[in-house]
Computed example of a mutant assay.
Amino acid sequence: MTGSGLPHCDADDLRLLNVLAYDGRTGLTELAAATGWSPSTVRRRMDDLQAQGALHFYTEFDVAYLGYRAGTRLWASVPPAELTAAGEALASHPEVVFAAATTGPTNLAATVICTDAHDTFRYLTQRLAALPAITHVETTPIIQTRNASAVSCGPPSTAEACAGDRFLRPGERDSGSRLTFTR
């Protein structure tokens, strides 16, 4: 983590954020030991970082418990001038749990969660097809998710460059690439 672009984030904050990046479940006592602060200072600083938008918490769980058993990765092509509007429209769909603008021939990526294969087909042929800016889409079903609840990257000092699961795009070969997690 570099801290660039983070509001009011100094070296002490980076130490705190690196420990949380390694394990977001780390308790106040352990965070206090890692930063040299008191637990009340840690709590206050975490509250400040959250309020400034530098610290976010997300919860992951198995959506199959809610009846959603068909996850799909989407890679879509959109003319650059329409990318923002198309991305915002796509992200507003309740089936979309992640959407991002990317570079390359497919410049809009998303993860869609549906109840089953039929529901996924309906989503692709009705809701997604209703977005006129999307000129091409490729899909990959999510067969298995590994390490969704935690990413083990080693100690916080090495959390910036760790291996993780990698999903291949259609037609792409696995080159053994590593993902780099940076801010």
Rank of each mutant, 00 (worst) to 15 (best):
W75K: 00
D47E: 14
I134Q: 01
R73T: 08
A110K: 03
R45C: 05
N18Q: 14
P132A: 09
A159E: 02
S92M: 05
H8I: 04
A130D: 08
F121S: 04
A110M: 13
I142A: 08
T182G: 03
Q50H: 07
T84F: 13
G87M: 02
M46E: 03
V63P: 04
Y22P: 00
A163W: 00
L90P: 00
E60T: 08
E172F: 10
Q52W: 15
H136R: 06
T106M: 03
F167V: 15
T103A: 08
S175E: 09
V19F: 04
G24P: 05
T35Q: 04
T2I: 06
G27E: 05
R44A: 13
Y22Q: 11
C162A: 12
R25I: 01
A33N: 09
L16C: 05
H93F: 15
H93G: 02
P80E: 03
L90T: 03
R173T: 14
R178C: 06
P105K: 15
L83G: 00
D62N: 09
P170S: 11
D165L: 09
D174C: 12
E88D: 14
A129K: 10
R43A: 15
G176H: 11
N147D: 07
T59R: 11
V19M: 13
R15M: 13
M46K: 00
W37K: 09
D62A: 12
P80T: 07
H136A: 06
S40V: 15
P94G: 06
T84E: 11
A159H: 09
R69S: 10
E60H: 07
A130W: 11
R178D: 09
A110P: 06
C153H: 09
P7R: 14
T135V: 12
Y65R: 04
A129P: 03
Y22L: 13
W75I: 01
Q52G: 08
P170I: 07
A159K: 08
L14D: 02
T41A: 01
L28I: 04
V96W: 00
E60I: 07
Y123F: 13
R69M: 11
L124F: 12
N18P: 00
L168P: 01
D119I: 05
A109D: 05
L108S: 02
F167C: 10
V78C: 01
E172G: 08
R25V: 01
G104I: 10
I134H: 00
V42C: 06
T145S: 12
A21R: 11
L16K: 02
S40A: 15
T106F: 06
L108T: 06
H118V: 10
S38A: 15
A133I: 08
G5N: 03
Y58G: 08
G71N: 00
P39A: 05
L20F: 10
T139Y: 04
V42T: 02
D165S: 15
S157I: 11
R169L: 12
N147V: 14
I134T: 01
C9N: 03
L90A: 01
A117V: 14
C162R: 00
R15A: 11
T120C: 09
A89E: 02
S92I: 12
